[in-house]
């Protein structure tokens, strides 16, 4: 029976309310899983008239899907690498020195996710249009990197604050130069934070649609493919399969990233 440290127990109403919230979050996802197996091709009939696995085969054979998936993966990979580099540099700068405008930097990095996505999207689009750069793979990456940096930055900065500076001083006192200290002391210390931040950044980019609609040209990433199906459903069964696939593929890295962060704060708490 769950109870808090005062020995109070959660009332039945509270437990039901909490359970309702949890079910509300997850039942819709389970319904997508169910629909991935439906035999119904043209509507969203419930209960499904029959169950089949044939749509998985159909989805596997779709070239447009593979192309969209490949593009999404490439964009997410490049945006994540950019975010890892820029986010870590910014975190290191903010951690090690107290300079004028430090707060402003945190604020600026968080803006792309604090402001509505259309603001970032239309801003980038009008800038790209004004300069006259053609929309391409790289314009998508630029858009994604702007909102991925803050994720890495937050993770790495939190880790820096938990690591004691004495380790770095010890390394330097023992004769290591800055580069040796970085590779042998700093990097191992922040490696899991980089891993967690990187996975979150990857998932965020892989999933993004609002900024992408403004910065992509004719290419379609996987979310853009799904969005086109949302407004004009042509391939319902295939979309159901893709939706299930997206849930599975994005939940895994985020799950592990969260586990890493949770364990890191546990270790520190002991």
């Amino acid at each position: 029976m769950p109870s808090n440290s005062n020995g109070e127990k959660a009332s039945l109403g509270l437990k039901l309310g909490a359970l309702a919230g949890l079910l509300f979050l997850y039942v819709p996802l389970l319904i997508i899983f169910l629909y991935a197996f439906t035999t119904d091709e043209t509507t969203y009939t419930f209960p499904p008239p029959g169950l089949t696995t044939k749509w998985f085969g159909v989805a596997l054979g779709r070239v447009d899907l593979w192309r969209a998936l490949a593009l999404s993966m490439q964009v997410a990979a490049v945006a994540t690498v950019a975010a890892l580099i820029l986010g870590t540099l910014a975190a290191a700068a903010v951690y090690r020195s107290n300079f004028f405008g430090r707060e402003a930097i945190s604020f600026m990095l968080v803006l792309p996710i604090a402001l509505p996505g259309i603001v970032t999207g239309i801003a980038l689009r009008s800038a790209i249009g004004t300069i006259g750069i053609p929309f391409s793979f790289w314009t998508i990456v630029i858009g994604h990197a702007t909102f991925c940096v803050v994720v890495v930055y937050n993770n790495v900065l939190a880790r820096f604050r938990r690591t004691s500076g004495s380790q770095m001083e010890a390394s330097m006192d023992l004769g290591a130069n800055s580069f040796q200290t970085f590779f042998h002391v700093v990097l191992p210390n922040i490696s899991t934070a980089l891993l967690a931040g990187g996975m979150l950044a990857f998932a965020l980019s892989f999933d993004e649609v609002i900024v992408t609609t403004f910065t992509a040209g004719q290419q379609s990433t996987l979310p853009i493919w799904i969005f086109s199906q949302l407004t004009r459903p042509r391939d319902r069964p295939v979309t159901n399969v893709v939706a299930m696939f997206v849930i599975l593929i994005t939940f895994l890295p985020i799950f592990f990233a969260q586990k890493i962060s949770a364990e890191a704060s546990d270790v520190e708490g002991k």
């Binding site: 996802l29 997508i32 849930i247 949770a262």
Partner: peptide
Amino acid sequence: LYIAVTLPLWSSYLVRVYAWKLI
């Protein structure tokens, strides 16, 4: 529970809209 709450925060935004199209 914290992971269960934050999993949907980070991911599958579009798919979670799609779920309601079905429902």
